[in-house]
Design a binder for these strands. Structure first.
Length: 299
DNA sequence: GCGTCCAGGTCTACC
DNA sequence: GGTAGACCTGGACGC
């Protein structure tokens, strides 16, 4: 089954797929030499699907739903998931208007950069974000792969969905430590999942929250295992760009770009991007990753 | 092949 | 409010 979806004129699938590392973590996957994003999904209705997204025309996406790898009849649900992951319902015209004021950032509007790929659920984004903390990218990939393979639903050979909060909540801390390789993050993942299942935590409401960002930031950092770095990046995937989310890679990259490799404090970096206002987190990220598209993606 | 060391973000205890 | 140490793993390195 093939679905079509019209997209805003400023949308660029290539830029969104490679906006950060999510496209190389399951249940997302990409293909070498093709601008194509695939995903295995367990839909809110319970159906499982596998689909691939391409952009044959500037204002049109094609979604190829593989009928052999899951039920293909969930048309509206699939479209809703794709729109959410690719940030198609969000308006970036204000961001591009601001970016045009800065010669250093005029390229963002010209290339359609800015939409950061996200998962259909905040839960998946949050779990993955915790799995990026205090470890190498290689270990993040191992943890997320294990989560999908051992707790997700199998769709086809080597294709699994991301586990639901319920699926994570029913395993033990020892399982998460040893089988998923989450190590000391295991109690964080377990508490997060169990709080969702018990109804103590409604992460999904963060995407539609009208709370001021600092208030939401406090709520996000209130979840065990989510500190300043993870919270800032989760907020970016919600559409709030007030915080930078500086990690060791960002510090190094900033230092290389602007300080001849000298050590820099986070305060210096924050001051550097402060005048970009509510969009500073997005300017910060696009600035540090601009070279990816000219050289090679690091994930 | 084995042992040691280091990097990485967050939490907790302590000052 | 700031700081030190623990947490855990993979990878780099030396032997």
């Amino acid at each position: 089954m093939k679905l079509s979806l019209s997209v805003p004129a400023d949308f660029n699938l290539h830029r969104t797929i490679y906006s950060h590392g999510w496209s190389s973590l399951p249940p997302f996957s990409t293909e070498k030499n093709r601008i194509l994003l695939s995903r295995a999904d367990e839909l809110p209705s319970g159906g499982v699907v596998f689909y691939s997204i391409s952009q044959p025309k500037k204002k049109l996406l094609t979604i190829d739903v593989d009928a052999k790898k899951g039920a293909a009849e969930h048309r509206s649900e699939i479209l809703r998931q794709v729109k959410s992951c690719l940030r198609l319902d969000e308006d970036y015209s204000e961001f591009y208007r601001v970016s045009k004021k800065y010669p250093h950032f005029r390229w963002t509007a010209k290339t359609g950069a800015g939409r950061l790929l996200r998962a259909p659920s905040v839960f998946e984004d949050a779990v993955k974000m915790i799995c990026t903390t205090n470890c190498s990218w290689a270990l993040t990939k191992i943890m997320v792969n294990n989560l999908c393979r051992k707790l997700g639903k199998k769709i086809a050979a080597d294709i699994y969905t991301f586990p639901s909060p319920k699926a994570v909540a029913r395993v033990t801390e020892a399982f998460l430590r040893k089988e998923i390789k989450a190590g000391y993050r295991a109690p964080y993942l377990l508490e997060l999942s169990r709080r969702i299942v018990n109804g103590d935590l409604d992460m999904e409401s963060w995407r539609i929250s009208t709370k001021p960002t600092p208030e939401l930031y406090d709520e996000v950092t209130g979840v065990k295992g989510i500190g300043p770095y993870a919270a800032a990046n989760i907020l970016k995937l919600i559409g709030r760009y007030d915080y930078l989310g500086i990690d060791s890679w960002c510090r190094k990259q900033f230092s290389t770009m602007y300080k001849d490799g000298r050590k820099v404090s986070d305060r210096t970096i924050e001051k550097f991007y402060n005048h970009y206002g509510a969009w500073r987190g997005l300017f910060f990220w696009l600035d540090l990753t601009k070279h990816w598209y000219e050289k090679e993606y690091p994930f």
